[in-house]
């Protein structure tokens, strides 16, 4: 009813609609916000609180006395700084490698391949996601081993396998998260109208120039969107590094060993605030690029 009368009573309709929409929005938002806003954020807050407590080493019970000792340890003991820097460097490197590899593939899929080939390529990119993460990491362990596939292939060139360590960790992480970069970039490039490329060519731009001046800037938000996945997934990893990391350890390893072996939740919680802070900062920065609409 209101709607049919609308043209005559413009202003009041707008305000009433707005109010009604406000109510609807509120109703619709209540369940997801209860789940995420209250339960999930509440859990994160509880974790933060826990990091300010301490633990009794003998009984393993948490003692609820307020202390900043965990954070003092975290910032004053050198090894944690080294590990943080190392973890962030690896996460950044993995992200860059994935972006460099994903861009040409996504571009080929979106703008060159025929619809049939495109369909096959999407399947080809998605299939590895279904093979277990662990099994893939273990397959790489075999490849990196002495006399494994990599040294076997590299031997004729006088090279050898990098062995287990940070190089292997970076490669494996980049491998594991590559599809998470390809998919958003592909989706982003698909939205790029062909006419834009043609216009650029018509204006005399070389394809390399088109790529650099038109495609890349347009695809940038999608690349950033993908980077959220690759960066965050790499930063929290503790399993791949255990399988191919040799002696190396990352933030995830420290959190895990403090929970698993030492049963020290307060300190683990304190360590876990590092990736949370980094990720929040990262999200705040990339929000400006419009990447969050590209996930």
């Amino acid at each position: 009813m209101t709607d049919t009368e609308a043209p005559r009573r413009g202003t009041s309709r707008v305000s009433r609609l707005a109010r009604r929409r406000g109510v609807t929005t509120g109703l619709l938002l209540t369940p997801p916000m209860l789940w995420l806003g209250v339960a999930y954020l509440g859990a994160l807050a509880a974790l933060l609180v826990t990091s300010l407590w301490t633990q009794d080493d003998f009984t393993g019970q948490i003692q609820r006395t307020w202390t900043l000792q965990n954070f003092r340890d975290l910032f004053t003991i050198d090894v944690y700084r080294t590990i943080t820097v190392r973890t962030l460097s690896i996460a950044a490197l993995v992200t860059v490698i994935d972006a460099i590899l994903a861009f040409p593939i996504a571009l080929y899929m979106a703008k060159v391949a025929s619809p049939r080939v495109q369909r096959l390529l999407v399947i080809a990119v998605l299939m590895p996601l279904w093979a277990s993460y662990l099994v893939k990491a273990y397959a790489w362990r075999g490849m990196f081993s002495e006399g494994g596939l990599i040294s076997w292939l590299a031997a004729p060139f006088g090279l050898n396998t990098p062995g287990y360590g940070l190089v292997a960790t970076t490669i494996v992480l980049a491998y594991l998260w590559l599809p998470f970069m390809i998919l958003p970039v592909f989706a982003g490039l698909q939205r790029l109208p062909d006419s834009l490329l043609e216009a650029s060519a018509d204006l005399g731009a070389h394809s390399w120039t088109t790529l650099r001046r038109v495609v890349l800037p347009m695809a940038f938000p999608a690349l950033v969107a993908g980077s959220i996945f690759t960066f965050s997934l790499s930063m929290g990893d503790y399993i791949a590094v255990r399988i191919v990391g040799g002696t190396g350890q990352l933030i995830g390893t420290v959190v895990y060993s403090n929970i698993g072996a030492a049963n020290n939740l307060p300190f683990a919680a304190a360590v876990a605030t590092v990736p949370v802070a980094v990720m929040l900062l990262y999200l705040a920065v990339v929000r400006r690029t419009g990447a969050l609409e590209n996930l």
Binding site: S232, L233, M235, G236, V255, P275, M279
Partner: peptide, 12 residues
């Protein structure tokens, strides 16, 4: 808030 659970590392 909706994005956060996937943007934060799984271990957190």
């Amino acid at each position: 808030v909706i994005l956060l659970p996937i943007a934060l590392p799984g271990i957190v």
